[in-house]
Design a protein around this nucleic acid. Structure first.
Lengths: 240, 240
DNA sequence: CGAAGAATTGACCGCATTCAAATGCGGTGG
DNA sequence: CCACCGCATTTGAATGCGGTCAATTCTTCG
């Protein structure tokens, strides 16, 4: 159970997003929204706020490129990172007129912003968004299991496995290659990983160190990790 | 962090659902799906499994009446209850062809089951489902915050507040009525509450007892709780 | 009334948090 | 190139919240 009340405010170095006027509203086309994107296109640098918690909800957003984190804070400063999103994922969805969580870029991003009115009038867009919501719901389910029932070690193992595209899920059945290595870039700080996994940054650091000591991971720079034994890591996630 | 590996199998007393042949497929009508419900109508008694984890996904479900819990289990028996759902909520959504979580009724239920093929061909239905997915995503976000960052006491307080319809959210600003009581029925066992909140049943029990001792709650039978002081309880949730 | 299951309560333990200090790394300017 | 600074990370030691194990009480139901 985490009680740390450390405060976070990246907000002080807030910068207005530089966005191209690349938007083509026009009459609703039947054609896929994938290609000719309606709505504004926004470009952000890494670590820029996109949505503030409690901000008035104007748009729904869809990531074209880059990664974004969605988070919430309690009044005393405890933060939980709710989702880590990548290309295709949507955010800024709310049932009230107000956003209930904050969004911030983790890497340079290209993001499509759809006015709420536009979304409401465009069924193709609604379905595009709905489709992606489904997979995000599944991810939220998995994450609830992690947050509610997994040990710190299992959380970290699960986190790293998720960074390996295509591994850990359906691809990781049985003890495949014993000496099976794979490099990943961890673009989050220990604090952010901790806030995502519902533990403290010290606990995350200890888990990384232990996995390194045990020969499951190896890394020099903190963000360039090599998973030395994918299958062993997989068995540490609690899910297998 | 929870490590208990108690096993749950309500499944042994499985009973085939008695469902009326109340379905009216017919050609897709523009009219709201709310009234003339397409798809099968199923009736369940309380505590009946609807979906098994890892079951092949045939249908998407929508609750007409009653309440349902969605859960997941780790191989060693740790269980997490992911969502508690009521009328209007949808479940059985998955991106793969397989369900990734189990569903079980908590009360007698009337549930609409839509064949996946039907859903894919019916845009009105897709939008109806999408609309509800939005609010469920928001609930999942809130729950992630609870699971990741709140203390046991705060979790229980939050849980009880959520049972009070219309309270705790937008309705609970400022110290309103000081002596403000409200009765609720807790239809979950302590074990289920625990699995929902990511703690043990003993911890839930202790939290209830403490709240009772402090005069925030009062109850004789375990499931008929009166919140003696709603606002005080609200302040214990960590969200205010 | 008695049995079975749920809930409560107590005692002890352990994992993760908390507090604190040391180390490592990247950037900046002399 | 190196010294220095700021920040993230690592590591250590102590504390405490919630988990675990176990015994008791309460409730329901046959």
């Amino acid at each position: 159970m985490s009680l740390e009340a450390r405060r976070f405010d990246h907000a002080e170095d807030r910068v207005p997003p530089k966005f191209d006027a690349d938007w083509s509203l026009g009459p609703s086309r039947k054609a896929s929204v994938e290609n000719g994107v309606r709505g504004r296109m926004l470009d952000f640098e890494a670590r820029r706020p996109i949505i503030d918690e409690a901000e008035k909800a104007r748009c729904v957003y869809r990531i074209v490129e880059g990664s974004v984190m969605i988070s919430k804070m309690l009044p005393d400063g405890r933060r939980q990172i709710i989702e880590l999103l990548g290309p295709g994922d949507v955010f800024g969805i709310t049932t009230t007129g107000t956003h209930q969580s904050a969004a911030e870029t983790l890497s340079p991003c290209r993001i499509a912003a759809y006015e709420r009115a536009l979304v409401e009038s465009d069924r193709d867009l609604q379905l595009l968004i709905a489709e992606r919501m489904k997979s995000q719901i599944c991810a939220l389910h998995d994450h609830a299991m992690l947050l509610g029932r997994k040990t710190a070690r299992e959380r970290v193992a699960t986190f790293i496995i998720r960074l390996l595209p295509g591994r850990g899920g359906a691809g990781c059945r049985g003890p495949a290659d014993p000496a099976d290595r794979s490099a990943v870039t961890v673009s989050l700080t220990r604090q952010e990983i901790a806030d995502y996994l519902g533990v403290t940054l010290e606990t995350v650091s200890r888990a990384f160190s232990q996995l390194k000591r045990e020969g499951v991971l190896s890394y020099g720079r903190h963000d360039a990790v090599t998973v030395t034994n994918v299958c062993r890591l997989c068995r540490l996630t609690g899910a297998h």
